[in-house]
Write a protein that binds this DNA or RNA. Structure first.
Lengths: 134, 134
DNA sequence: CTGTATCCTTAGGGATACTG
DNA sequence: CAGTATCCCTAAGGATACAG
């Protein structure tokens, strides 16, 4: 069978790029991981103003990659709850290092100083929790 | 003055995405950081087959962002040596976490088991070195 | 060798209307 | 509310030729 996700190379950096190397995917993961968002409407409401077609496309792709799962919605509710899989939660260390880097170099970042300090303190604890499976 | 790099938001994840959130930039950084590459031709020769216009564009952008510097080439040589700035070297922890994640989830990645084990052992040492300024 | 320039094609994505 | 569907435009990118 032909692979749905052909790779340009078998480099680990490249694998990551082909998983979430675009301008939108990581924002969805951020919302799931840090912002307690889980519904289509939640993601749409984020500050970067993702459009509906892009959001639907990325959610589908994230599901196919096994990073996100579409939660079993309650029968009579039209709310759909997305959540991170283990593979998705395992992105936490990357997200923390990114936050730390941006916090150092982006004067305008809204990761406040107190948030960054807390991040430093909780980092190992958070990562250990992730590795244990949460 | 109008900013050359308008931001969609002031989120740290978004800052990173707007710095290197595309399919090529991180490959150049990888080549500089791990593969002892430093010339235009070196980058062109990498497995993912970046094209000349894209490479030139990304190098320029990386310079503007202060992640890469164009080395002072020797007078009579046409070789140009690019290298990472401190801001660029500070991406190491992110790169290591990405490598670790891909090593866990990409069956085809060429980060061999032995490389990943070495990464685990040397990780803190490498990061400490980066923080000290190399 | 280090790029520029050009041509051309495709993919990404904004806006908005619409459907179950 | 959670998507689909369209329309349309721009940015991204491959190929290749050329220049300093």
């Amino acid at each position: 069978m032909t692979n749905k996700f052909p790779q340009r190379s078998h480099c680990p950096i490249n694998y990551a790029l082909e998983s979430f190397g675009d301008k939108w995917t990581l924002l969805i993961i951020r919302d799931l991981m840090f912002n307690d968002k889980q519904s289509y409407g939640d993601f749409l409401a984020s500050g970067e103003k993702i459009s509906t077609n892009i959001l639907a496309d990325r959610l589908k792709r994230l599901e196919e990659l096994g990073i996100v799962t579409k939660g079993a919605q309650a029968p009579n509710r039209s709310k759909v709850a997305y959540s991170l899989t283990q593979k998705g939660r395992d992105l936490l260390p990357i997200m923390l290092e990114i936050t730390r880097w941006s916090g150092k170099y982006d004067a305008d970042t809204y990761a406040s100083r107190s948030f960054l300090m807390r991040l430093e303190q909780d980092r190992d604890k958070l990562i250990a929790a992730i590795r244990a499976g949460w």
